[in-house]
Simulated scan of single mutants.
Amino acid sequence: MISTRAQRTAGATKYDPANGEITISLASISLAWDAFEQHGWEQFSSTVRHELIHAWQYHEFGEADHGRTFDRWTDMLNTTQHCERFKSPNWWLICEECGGQLPRFQRSKVVKQPENYSCGDCGGSLRVEEATE
């Protein structure tokens, strides 16, 4: 499946527990080509292997994450736990307490009203900064 809305990742794996269907979505062709041109075949093919691990997790366990079952396959499949971002965000959410930074690509509710949300790691207040890239 090809997504025309993907902005921060080159791929995603989804599982429908109702019918057991596992779908691996790759970013739109233009974004996929941008990722390929920016990072090369090795990085982009690593993303595909990364998503295949998630597909295996869904098949075997009905859920997927980047935990221990994921980690045990990364070396064997020559991939990483987190794929490199291939598009710069438009905004950064920054925690005032722990300094954590989360990229944001769309003007979502949390970008518009960060005072209504808190950091998922420490509960601190959030502020929004426009990305400079």
Rank of each mutant, 00 (worst) to 15 (best):
L102G: 00
E129H: 13
F105C: 00
R104L: 02
W73K: 08
C95H: 07
G123F: 05
F61P: 00
S125T: 12
E97D: 14
Q113H: 14
W73Q: 12
T132F: 07
F105V: 04
G99F: 05
S108G: 05
G124W: 11
R107K: 15
V110F: 03
K112M: 12
V110P: 07
C98K: 12
D71Q: 14
W73V: 01
H82D: 00
T132K: 14
E63R: 13
R72K: 15
G67D: 06
K87D: 07
D75K: 15
R72E: 14
E133M: 03
E96N: 10
C122F: 06
T69H: 11
G62Y: 11
A64T: 06
H82T: 11
L102R: 10
N78S: 13
Q101N: 03
T80H: 13
T79K: 08
Q81T: 15
L126A: 05
G123P: 02
T74A: 09
E133Q: 11
W91N: 00
R68P: 05
S108V: 04
K112W: 01
V128C: 04
C122T: 07
A64E: 07
W91T: 04
G100L: 08
E129F: 03
G67M: 08
A131L: 00
E97P: 02
Q113Y: 15
A64D: 06
T79I: 10
L77K: 04
K112R: 15
R107C: 02
D121F: 11
N78M: 03
S118F: 06
R104K: 15
R72H: 10
R68C: 01
T80A: 09
R104Y: 10
R104A: 02
